[in-house]
Design a protein around this nucleic acid. Sequence first.
DNA 1: GTCGTAGTGGTCGTATTGGTCGCAACCGGC
DNA 2: GCCGGTTGCGACCAATACGACCACTACGAC
Lengths: 220, 220
Amino acid sequence: MSDIRVLVVDDDFMVARIHAGYVARMPGFEVVATAHNGADAITAVAGSRPDLVLLDIYLPDMSGLEVLKAISGVDVLVISAARDVPTVREAMRGGAVNYLIKPFAAAALTERLQQYAHTRRQLSAIGPEAGQDDVDRLFGVTGTPPALPKGLSQATCALVATVLREAGRDLSAVETASLTGLSRVSARRYLEYLCGARRAELRPRYGTAGRPEHRYRWIG
Amino acid sequence: MSDIRVLVVDDDFMVARIHAGYVARMPGFEVVATAHNGADAITAVAGSRPDLVLLDIYLPDMSGLEVLKAISGVDVLVISAARDVPTVREAMRGGAVNYLIKPFAAAALTERLQQYAHTRRQLSAIGPEAGQDDVDRLFGVTGTPPALPKGLSQATCALVATVLREAGRDLSAVETASLTGLSRVSARRYLEYLCGARRAELRPRYGTAGRPEHRYRWIG
DNA sequence: GTCGTAGTGGTCGTATTGGTCGCAACCGGC
DNA sequence: GCCGGTTGCGACCAATACGACCACTACGAC
């Protein structure tokens, strides 16, 4: 896959240079332009066709929020010292993929860029038609009990949950497999899901030579 | 707090009515208008000043995505049979708070509306200035665990960190091993990682016969 | 000052499990 | 009746902790 093309926008020449340096050092990313005001940013978006824009809010000629509304077809990561709630909210509404408050650690930017790259890979892996579960993943469903991922069935899930609850103790993947009649792989998948849904917890057991054993316990 | 004002947009009169019915039955929500094409939707946004728009993509006069770009100052929840990836992506970029694929269960809409109400309460509870952690919550940071080096597991890392924090004093590698139940080698690896991540500090202790002892202290 | 000793830091090989990929069987829709 | 999608499984690959060994550093005895 080709590199992710990035446009860096910051009124401070030095800051823009630093941000560009961070991005350039990230494998898989490439800085295609920098801009120091809103008008140049909009021109650069049209000219360089970046995939992602690192956008400052405080610009000499216009607000970064206006730039955000003016451009389309690109993703935007806001990087700004502006931390008032209305600005953050407007950035969200404008479709910013993330928002980083200055000053920030280099690792924070790195992390968000990696997250962006990951989301991008997810997008390209979906296929022609998205399902509701794909969409939910993209929009980051939080708090809501995640719908069963593809490949998991309601009945089997209930079976695994029942066995784990009735056991009254923690079970390993192989034990669960034996008790339910499923294969180890399937049992593990469902146990993993129950963990993600906060209906079970995972605690590794050490002491044996070899890789630690994952033991699952029901926590309804 | 006053109700959340909702504008329902769908070209199909009956569908709009059904959606409006769902919303009206939700406590804390209020339908202030309905629209059946893009132009009416834009007018209604200006006239009724809703907080949230339930927006269809397929409209007779223009695409819902165009409507999304044309309106501002309101949140948008896309409800559409359109499930191709570019459309979903463009909706994300346009700042849609969520995306529901038709047909959907009534519970799915209810869930998303509740999630929206929850996010809204979070927003108003933040105060005048947002911190990075507030922003992360809003953007649904799933907390990408800062990629541990190969050979280290998330669960074990959490275990070691917890033991070290709860100890309230500095611990040696052997003490940590005994308290966590893992071997000295593994304990030391995780302690070393925590030091590198600035979550613990290392101070050698002398006075004992034998090689000086490395003592680790939690510095969250 | 030198050497012995003690006790831990660090590395390497190994064991045993976790996790992934592709396939087969089944099911519902056109 | 065919076909795309879903669900579970077998087999492989990789991960992760342990045991054993060597190395290193301070203290104490002479």
